[in-house]
Design a binder for these strands. Structure first.
Lengths: 212, 212
DNA sequence: ATCAAAGTTGACGATCATTCATTTTTAGAA
DNA sequence: TTCTAAAAATGAATGATCGTCAACTTTGAT
């Protein structure tokens, strides 16, 4: 039993990190090219330059790998949003910006669009990954008297599902992208804003997202 | 080329109706026993007493068959709800009763529970099947000054996804069934009610559903 | 150098949705 | 009644995939 090397990490641990990262990267690429369903484990393994069976040393199932991919996408988006909203004053506006950005990204970024089927998995990942930020914002805006969201966790969960559902409807052409502002307004209503304030808040100009 | 019989329907058409109905019935039974994924086309065909290939004369794919099953479940529920709300005065209460009943049924009835995965498919079926009623209620309640729901269709779509997402969370133990009242209240907020009125409306006693 | 444990591999088994060549049924014409 | 061509039904075969597993390789401590 090795007790780590000079750097606190042996060759094995290093290789395992490489493999795990390569697998998630390959899976992200292929899944966002062809959709999560159409991506095969064999193709992912090949692109990650790893044996087909090796995937199962890292992920119990294809679904678990897909979840890891989603968590990566959401982490990236969360970082971008943080970078912008850091300097906002109004926590209500932080929240509004967040959900609008998720909506725009989910419908605009091809890396998201292809994953929108399996909404329940995505909505759950969204709930878990962005939850800490969203719930904090909901509470702060509530404390500031802007929202009425005692059960912030519940509100956030409902919002996640509605948001992903709306994104899917837009990518499938059942809903016009022009509705985005109204979608956000309705979701703000759910956080305890009256329709007029919600519409105003959803309509405010937004700074652009940084990066890609 | 036969031009129909005495009753306006030939033997073929009659058999086709029997087959289609038998297939949906068999699929409903098996899918609600084992879940839609675990149900195999062969087992469905056998229970419907039909050749395996015959299913594809009636449904283009397994998914299309699953959708037909869902539509059946929703039609039944819609009828039950209609029977109760027929005599309600307040359209807002009709709407509230409807969404609460969908929530309770989705989480309580085993025939629904097993289908809750594939939320996007269910939410879409819910949107289409119960939409005419729900949207009518939203508009009437809006006209009566109870709601503020100009974009009734959008509100209803968001509500469908949130409702199914919440149902799934409850069946998976991520959310307590005791939250149901708060879920309904939040969804009423989305229809343009303030939190206090929404909470009151969601908390009103409800008559029981008839039938099974 | 040796060795046992940990990690990797890819061929393989099992499963299942879907297809399609063949058979059966149908309904009207002869 | 008998015949016939089209429609419908059939179920064995297909092809594709996930996940398993017994054999193999790598690792790092002794």
């Amino acid at each position: 039993m090795a007790e780590a090397g000079i750097q606190g990490e042996g060759r094995v641990a290093r290789r395992q990190r490489r493999n795990r990262a390569a697998l998630i990267k390959a899976a992200r690429e292929i899944m966002t090219e062809k959709g999560a369903e159409a991506a095969t484990m064999l193709e992912i393994a090949e692109r990650a330059d790893v044996g087909a069976g090796t995937i199962y040393n890292y992920f119990r199932s294809k679904d678990e790998l897909a979840i890891a991919v989603l968590e990566g996408l959401m982490h990236d988006l969360g970082v971008s949003i943080q970078a912008v909203t850091d300097r906002f004053e109004d926590p209500a506006q932080v929240y509004a910006f967040g959900i609008r950005t998720v909506l725009d990204t989910a419908t605009g970024d091809p890396r998201w669009r292809q994953m929108l089927h399996r909404s329940e998995v995505i909505a759950d990942a969204l709930f878990r990954m962005m939850g800490p930020f969203a719930i904090r914002d909901l509470r702060q805006a509530s404390a500031a008297g802007r929202f009425q969201a005692e059960g912030a966790e519940l509100t956030w969960r409902l919002t996640c599902h509605a948001l992903i559902g709306a994104s899917l409807a837009i990518t499938e052409g059942q809903l016009s992208p022009a509705e985005s502002e109204r979608i956000v307004a309705r979701l703000l209503c759910m956080a305890g804003l009256d329709l007029a304030s919600a519409t105003e808040l959803a309509g405010r100009p937004r700074p652009p997202l940084p990066g890609r």
